[in-house]
Design a protein around this nucleic acid. Sequence first.
RNA 1: GCCGAGAUAGUCUAGCCCGGAAAGGCGGUGGCCUUGAAAGCCACUGGUGUUUCACCUCAGGAGUUCAAAUCUCCUUCUCGGCGCCA
Length: 466
Amino acid sequence: MLELKFIRNNPDVVRADLTKRGGDDEKLAWIDDLLEKDIQSRDMQIDINTMRNRRNIISREIKEAKKAKQDISGFLEEAKSLPAQIREAEAALEEVNGKIKFYQMRIPPNILHESVPVGADDSENVEFKKWGEPVVPSFPLRNHGELAVEKGLAEFERAAKISGAGFYMLKGNLALLDLALQHLALDVLGERGYTPVIPPYMMNRAAYEGVTDLGGDFENVMYAIDGEDEFLIATSEHPPMAAMYMNEIFDEKDLPLKLAGVSPPCFRREIGSHGIDTRGLFRVHQFNKVEQFVYCKPEDSWALHEELLKNSEDIFQMLGLPYRVVNICTGGDIGTVAAKKYDMEVWMPREEAYREVVSCSNCTAYQSVRLNIRARDAHDFENKYPPLHTLNSTAVATTPDDSGHYGKLSGRGRHGCHPPRSPAALHERRRDSLILIFSGSCEGVKKLNTFFRLFHFPDIFKMTRR
RNA sequence: GCCGAGAUAGUCUAGCCCGGAAAGGCGGUGGCCUUGAAAGCCACUGGUGUUUCACCUCAGGAGUUCAAAUCUCCUUCUCGGCGCCA
């Protein structure tokens, strides 16, 4: 959410942003009401403080009188009446503050960066970067899920039997690939100064509400643990990585703080239905992900936004997956939290379309204000606690990645190996075998053996890499 | 899960029994001094506000009271001891 102080001092900026997003009159009216309530609230606070002041003074007088062995009954009469008055005024104030908070949490959204394009919906997102050559299949492709089952790399029916629709089992090389992709992302990010974090997979309601406003939808989006005040996390960046520092103050010297959150697994109830590949690995109840998360000083956040995107791009380039990057427009899926958001969309040959697999956002101060996370600036006494900026970007979400690989692979059908798109990069990292495993047959076998050896002996693996 | 002891500012700690303005050390910031630095000395160092002043704050919440870090109850977490368990 935006700082109250900011809204109070810059109502026109807030209104202009709502208008840019195509905001309606109702929301603009809410802003006016919010500003009015803010004035009211501060007046009430002053009244309350005056009464508290009086109470404190009387208390002190009683103390002094008792010390001097004087009669205190004269003071007690007024003293006894005050607490009730104060309580009443406090209750009234709380009601007004509750409304302010309500508005503050729902409107206004974050102030958009000037480079965010205006558009009605996702079709008007602006593509500004493309890498790799999308494969256009010359014959009908098979569903990646089917193919995986056929090759003994996944199970859907047995997963459904024990867990329900939307679940899967990864087997054999596919299970290993899933882990290897996470490992790859952590290696790349680790070299670049990101600290790997494995967070708890459950979070209590209070912490979750600090992170995101799900309203009444809480139970529909997330899995709740019966009999416990715990929810399975839906993603790693918001819940643990953002909430872990809530109500804390950073020392300037600790910024920027760069984290690589490993969230096996993320749990989601809502997965929707996605056309031809509904069955498979693209949208599931449970998936694995490595997420970049950064806390930084405001002046650094735009450069870091580009850095996060570059990290994600580098990983996808190592994997040889063609993708494009779009700048999400005002009517797209930009949400209320991000000031600017890039999506990386990977090419899905079967659908002959780019599909979102990475979402990279600069949330500026919006999240940190809501979570009450601040930075201490010892040198700036005017603005002792400048707002902190937060950013997040997917590094890999493994099942969507798998699906991308499979899309590519299914284009080759049973005709054999497909050379990695970026062999040099992969070879350097000894990751080429991964892609070859995916090609599913013949010449890949030798490299596959190499992969197993390396994978099962991570120390040797590290030595070979250097 | 049971029993016991705890939670005080960036950090370490005093205050709690016996209710009456949160004391001090370290660390940090600024200043004096110095060619420069160290040492020493001085000031500031929980939060908010309409900032000579006021209010809030002692893990969180509720209660008793004119008045709660302090008394009572509940919750959370930490540390011991016991039990259970991969």
